[in-house]
Computed example of a mutant assay.
Amino acid sequence: MTQCTDHADAEVKGIARYIPTTLSKGILLLLPGTAWFAFSAIREHPSWFGFQNLTELEQTLTAALASAAACIMLVIVLVLDMAIAVHHSKHRRTVHYSNTHPLMSFKFLASNATVLHWLVLGLVCTSFFAAGYVVAKT
């Protein structure tokens, strides 16, 4: 007896196999930043949110709860997005695109650069350095 086996995911390797969509990658990158931002925004500026009358311990606990709530919301969205991606992978293939073109690598650009390119790049870097020096001195 032969069994119908789905080999749609066999071609996808690495982290893209476990995090299939762009939204899930974005949410995973947002999680640590959201936790830090929510905590520090409430803790450092309690008057923005009306918490100036609370004690420091209560402000810290409120900031920690808000940070945890924001992270939990993001995790729920992440789980829903990945559940939808897993459900749809049985009906259509998940296509993984590469956002790098082989001719746009640093190795290719450096090997094909002319003297004029290096001079312009040096001029741009020097002008930014000079502008930063002038701004720092004033």
Rank of each mutant, 00 (worst) to 15 (best):
residue 33 G to S: 06
residue 3 Q to F: 07
residue 67 S to D: 02
residue 80 L to N: 06
residue 56 E to R: 11
residue 30 L to P: 00
residue 57 L to R: 09
residue 134 V to N: 02
residue 103 L to H: 09
residue 77 V to G: 03
residue 120 V to T: 07
residue 109 L to N: 06
residue 54 L to E: 08
residue 47 S to V: 00
residue 12 V to R: 10
residue 87 H to M: 11
residue 48 W to M: 13
residue 132 G to Q: 04
residue 125 C to F: 14
residue 110 A to I: 11
residue 23 L to V: 15
residue 91 H to S: 08
residue 89 S to P: 05
residue 7 H to A: 08
residue 68 A to Y: 07
residue 103 L to S: 15
residue 90 K to T: 12
residue 19 I to Q: 03
residue 70 A to Y: 09
residue 14 G to A: 02
residue 133 Y to G: 02
residue 16 A to E: 10
residue 107 K to D: 10
residue 48 W to A: 12
residue 37 F to M: 08
residue 104 M to G: 02
residue 42 I to E: 01
residue 4 C to H: 11
residue 100 T to K: 05
residue 73 M to T: 13
residue 14 G to E: 06
residue 119 L to I: 10
residue 87 H to W: 13
residue 70 A to C: 15
residue 110 A to Q: 14
residue 74 L to Q: 14
residue 90 K to M: 09
residue 132 G to H: 05
residue 116 L to C: 01
residue 4 C to V: 14
residue 84 I to P: 01
residue 21 T to Q: 01
residue 70 A to W: 10
residue 89 S to G: 02
residue 91 H to N: 06
residue 125 C to Y: 10
residue 131 A to P: 00
residue 49 F to G: 02
residue 65 L to F: 11
residue 20 P to V: 02
residue 1 M to Q: 04
residue 2 T to G: 05
residue 5 T to K: 04
residue 117 H to N: 15
residue 84 I to A: 13
residue 98 S to Q: 09
residue 83 A to W: 00
residue 103 L to C: 10
residue 82 M to I: 14
residue 74 L to C: 11
residue 6 D to P: 03
residue 135 V to Q: 08
residue 105 S to H: 04
residue 63 A to V: 01
residue 27 I to R: 09
residue 25 K to C: 09
residue 6 D to G: 00
residue 56 E to G: 05
residue 33 G to P: 01
residue 114 T to C: 11
residue 35 A to E: 06
residue 37 F to H: 06
residue 123 L to H: 01
residue 85 A to Y: 08
residue 49 F to V: 15
residue 95 V to F: 10
residue 135 V to N: 04
residue 49 F to M: 12
residue 21 T to P: 00
residue 39 F to T: 04
residue 63 A to N: 01
residue 80 L to Q: 12
residue 90 K to F: 14
residue 101 H to M: 03
residue 23 L to Q: 11
residue 9 D to Q: 13
residue 60 T to W: 07
residue 104 M to P: 01
residue 100 T to P: 00
residue 24 S to W: 00
residue 12 V to I: 15
residue 128 F to D: 09
residue 129 F to G: 01
residue 97 Y to D: 07
residue 71 C to N: 07
residue 9 D to K: 09
residue 109 L to H: 12
residue 78 L to R: 04
residue 76 I to M: 09
residue 101 H to Y: 07
residue 137 K to E: 12
residue 10 A to L: 13
residue 32 P to N: 06
residue 112 N to T: 15
residue 78 L to E: 04
residue 108 F to H: 08
residue 30 L to A: 15
residue 19 I to D: 03
residue 19 I to F: 04
residue 27 I to S: 10
residue 93 R to L: 06
residue 63 A to C: 02
residue 91 H to V: 00
residue 34 T to P: 04
residue 112 N to G: 06
residue 35 A to G: 14
residue 61 L to G: 00
residue 94 T to S: 13
residue 103 L to V: 11
residue 62 T to F: 06
